[in-house]
Design a protein around this nucleic acid. Sequence first.
DNA 1: CTGTTAGCGCATTCAT
DNA 2: ATGAATGCGCTAACAG
Lengths: 340, 340
Amino acid sequence: MTIRDVAKLAEVHPGTVSRALNEETRALVNFETAERVRRAAEQLGYRPNRIARGLKTNRSFTIGVLIPDLTNPLFPPILRGIEDRLEQVGYTALIVNTDNDPVHERRHLEALLARQVDGFIAATARLDTGSLARVAADGTPVVLVNRSLEDGALPAVTVDDRHGSRLAVDHVVALGHTQIAHVAGPQNVSTGHRRYLGLLDALRAHGLEAPAERVGFAAAFSEPEGERACSAVLDGGGRVTAIVAGNDRLAIGCYDALEARGLRCPEDVSIIGFNDMPFIDRLRPPLTSVRIPQREIGAVAADLLLGQLSGEPPDAREILVAPSLIVRSSTAPAAAAPGS
Amino acid sequence: MTIRDVAKLAEVHPGTVSRALNEETRALVNFETAERVRRAAEQLGYRPNRIARGLKTNRSFTIGVLIPDLTNPLFPPILRGIEDRLEQVGYTALIVNTDNDPVHERRHLEALLARQVDGFIAATARLDTGSLARVAADGTPVVLVNRSLEDGALPAVTVDDRHGSRLAVDHVVALGHTQIAHVAGPQNVSTGHRRYLGLLDALRAHGLEAPAERVGFAAAFSEPEGERACSAVLDGGGRVTAIVAGNDRLAIGCYDALEARGLRCPEDVSIIGFNDMPFIDRLRPPLTSVRIPQREIGAVAADLLLGQLSGEPPDAREILVAPSLIVRSSTAPAAAAPGS
DNA sequence: CTGTTAGCGCATTCAT
DNA sequence: ATGAATGCGCTAACAG
């Protein structure tokens, strides 16, 4: 079923069929002719071949999306935000998992380029900046999501991590806590670093501080690392009544560390996570967490990219999306803590 | 950067470049010439345009993947299984979320067809069978994953649900339980129905039975429905010491129902889930669950489709993948239950 | 308003 | 073993 079959049935030239069926050029053709073409197309079950169209127009209406791992619950909502937005305007996402492996990243980038993607959205934690920047320099729009570059060379959509830390600190301070610890994520990842900086700021704003022995650094956003870092803090000697974790998985590790020491949450120690992952409300106790609007982040990133694709200036700026605090049962007033 | 630029630099005809760079036709060209072409391509950073290739060969090397919702933790592992397999052979997945909405389904199907996908993998729970069958009849291979058709009209890869139920029943029976209830999923979905049937079989094999008042039917695989159905069973009068749930979310609903009645798990009632979702081991108590090898299911489905694409007979058969039981702390010996 | 023509980048048939 | 020519299905520039 090609455009020529339709042309034959409608008794017009193929070029006319193309114009009649294309939204943007329909005005160029007589209404009645257009109707006739439309009916012929319908009758034949004609479906325009987007591959052929893409070859001619040099646009594929596809976007390459690079993520570390689809299986990480952080990403599906972001992807839905991206896909829903893209689909509204006829674009499709090509999703690839890099597993944070530089070799995979390169290979995928090449493959997507070969497929003529019109742009990229990258959510990988430490994607080779060089490759991406080069791609962008060569004229293919790139937007980062959930991460950003120090030099702001590429437009990025991220959560306002520092604000999130402030929300967490404000909450435990309001509950009367003063001995507040931090189980920080990896500092070479922007989220880990910013949440840490935000925490220091927030504490300072309340006239508090976080001595080094009350901050544990995890080498990865994983439960075991959370437990390790938390254990170091708990065993460090200083008293701790509240812990702000760099993300939910680290918070789960904190649960483990508390349990191993016979400490109860929230009676002995309050814990706050970050991300508000699915089912985190089903833990014991349900985790208080800073929710990041993942779907929105994805949608905003898609919008940014679509804007560039329609010729807007590349606007290499970082857009911060505000998180919110979801209070559950892992935090309680400091007064409730049994004296020690 | 087109094939012609390379041809010019290598001082050969474009056709030769095509042959030299294409794996399958490389043998047709002199080794030295091929080398010269390869070097020229590399020097120019030439990347074959797959769109153009697709137009010519009438293959896009893309596969349409229909799922209800990426955000449902069941699907990411399946998708990884699919993608990993596809990528090895140069295919890419186009993933669309149908949200179980027939209108969306149709629209997406059309859009994917317009993009000339070479085949489909469908995981949607109740995708209009007609559309899919028609697509398959028109020559585009279709493979179902995680669901199947009664008439076996389409090849399908599913978990052996009945076997899973048997594993669950065997486990609680081995623990000494005899009063075993079932909180079943929706019966118009193959997984829900088969798990129910498998449960009946398994009980019968142990000389037990499940009277109607010990089976609750949930209208959806959701926590609230699980709680509702479980409550009906618990309040039904008969004594119950173990519950096999249709999936993990229903099991979580069972937790809620128990808690509302002051019953403890596993001391008073043992509970088993199905799917072994991420973080389900972090519930209180960690849920015993039937694990389905999601990644493998995806990979097998991809293999099946790739087989059809390379001309194998359509083999409209259902492949069952065996689940396994993951024992955690939500199940305990019946003897441990306090008398009542 | 519609027909004509050309060509997107590549694979492939037919010559040579 | 390589060159030449053709066309995949569509859009766009130009005529008429």
